[in-house]
Nucleic acid binder design. Sequence first.
DNA 1: CCCGATTTGTG
DNA 2: ACAAATCGG
Length: 680
Amino acid sequence: MSGGRSIVWFRRDLRVEDNPALAAGVRTGAVVAVFIWAPEEEGHYYPGRVSRWWLKQSLAHLDSSLRSLGTTLVTKRSTDSVSTLLEVVKSTGATNLFFNHLYDPLSLVRDHRAKEILTAQGIAVRSFNADLLYEPWDVNDDQGRPFTTFAAFWERFLSMPYDPEAPLLPPKRIISGDISRCPSDLLIFEDESDKGSNALLARAWSPGWSNADKALTAFINGPLIEYSKNRRKADSATTSFLSPHLHFGEVSVRKVLHLVRIKQVLWANEGNKAGEESVNLFLKSIGLREYSRYMSFNHPYCHEQPLLGHLKFFPWVVDEGLFKAWRQGRTGYPLVDAGMRELWATGWLHDRIRVVVSSFFVKVLQLPWRWGMKYFWDTLLDADLESDALGWQYISGTLPDGREFDRIDNPQFEGYKFDPHGEYVRRWLPELARLPTEWIHHPWNAPESVLQAAGIELGSNYPLPVVGIDEAKGRLLEALSEMWQQEAASRAAIENGTEEGLGDSSESAPIAFPQDIQMEENREPVRNNLPTTIRRYEDQMVPSMTSSLLRVEEQETSSYLQNVAEDSRAEVPRNGNVNQEQRRDILNQGAAQTTRSNNNLPYFSVVSGLRNFEDSTAESSSSSSRRERDGGVVPVWSPPTASYSEQFAGDESGIGTSSYLQRHPQSHQIMNWRQLSQTG
DNA sequence: CCCGATTTGTG
DNA sequence: ACAAATCGG
């Protein structure tokens, strides 16, 4: 026990292999491994049933691994992780706290708080990168600014001057800290009514880090080589199935990369083109996961606010009936419905089908994407805030490199592509099982005799399309022109100085979640040992730092560069050769008109871990100096104080449309930007 | 084998 | 909408 006692705070890093926080604890001496279950901290992102099931299994698995190494996992039920950490410190006499970084907005705030409070108590706190290949603040363009498109990000990512760290081996043994006065709480993740449904999950999935490791190996030695060939099949078992493992940190991306690269070299030497392409595609999907953290870090509101503001006035269809039809897989479009039934039944969907159902949701039904994202959150086994936010924003056309907003994908044709024989549809829609392949993706066109022979009565045992594709196209155009009018009116009001009136907050306020989001079968999860009110979506308030941030007009005139670089980005200490003054000059050159007078106020405060602050200043002479693996720079941003929030109500996390347009003049033609900007 | 037409893929 | 890949005369 020479070095003292360390708390290793497990979160979404439920593994003993390549876990730098755990390794640091072991190096220091005795270890108290702790997991804190504080779902109330997640706001309305309380984990869904299947996600909780996975977590439960994964924790049990981790505990058993820790036991075989010499200690045990302490579990705590809490509503406030930081005060629980303090209790654990007191009851174990620990002097160090180690944990691994997370990048979702709530974690950034919470972890910063943990670091401040524990440090003030004399605890040495250090944090590590365990979730990403490169930390978000290490991947920047030549001017030191974060990228705003995936392609540019990925290009830089692949040509970083140094490799990601090699994965660490698991510790050989762990000296257990004294936990005799730190009893575990029993964590309850499922109620009685969940058990039946959850029992099925165990047949398909094996949570836990060593199972994750097996899944990784099996994928890399098996389906990986065919990944590019098979990726378009809705049905096939050719995906890696790693996403839930990755979400909970049961396997490290560093190890994934490490193993994939071995194959990459091998296949490159063999001249195996398909293999090389497969590797590149698979790595790209790993890259999108990295990018989702990157986006979340740089734009902390991107899970609830569009990154681009150009759809601010879009009249979304607020129709809970349509929403329900989508959830229940009763839209009348077989491929969509099959996907939604699979999601409900299994908590899983092939990536292709996620795109199909979400694109249908946004473009055909024109429902607000956050509803869809929330439903994914509640039902997906691999629900992941950052990845899902990126995905939905991509589909919704609110990213600089997202899909065009006016592009409507037709599920019928997607059906031909992804499920050419209709097998997928037949599996999940038994009512269509007898329909010939010719009609399987558009039963509404089938002759009456065919339908009869198949036992289908449209509108009765299988619905007619809830919205026709042509109808959807028409409505989309109408909605867009309505949006332009609103936008122009709002702009005019602003410029007349009559401001306030039209359009400010009312239209741009996020559309609340419907109260009745639950399907009938979807019962409330047990709220553990705590007396809490029943969770309804209306209760699930927006985290406090967001509520004051409704976007207003300002983003039209404030430039993207200033918004992003100065305000919204969660900054970390920079050890680059470009100092803040220079940066500002560079930024101001590109950015024209800002009307803001207060743009020097940091929106998010910059904080670093104590220890690292010294490290990074010491290194500050070299621009690309590499951070230590356990350097523990903690990216954090803090909620604005109330007095700032008024001034900064201009969608700090968004990308101003004007400069976006300059960079991407070809996109979104239908938006008719020129016309808009001339009105002003 | 070249070049225009057509299809495919697009984060 | 556009570029890249593929097709076919």
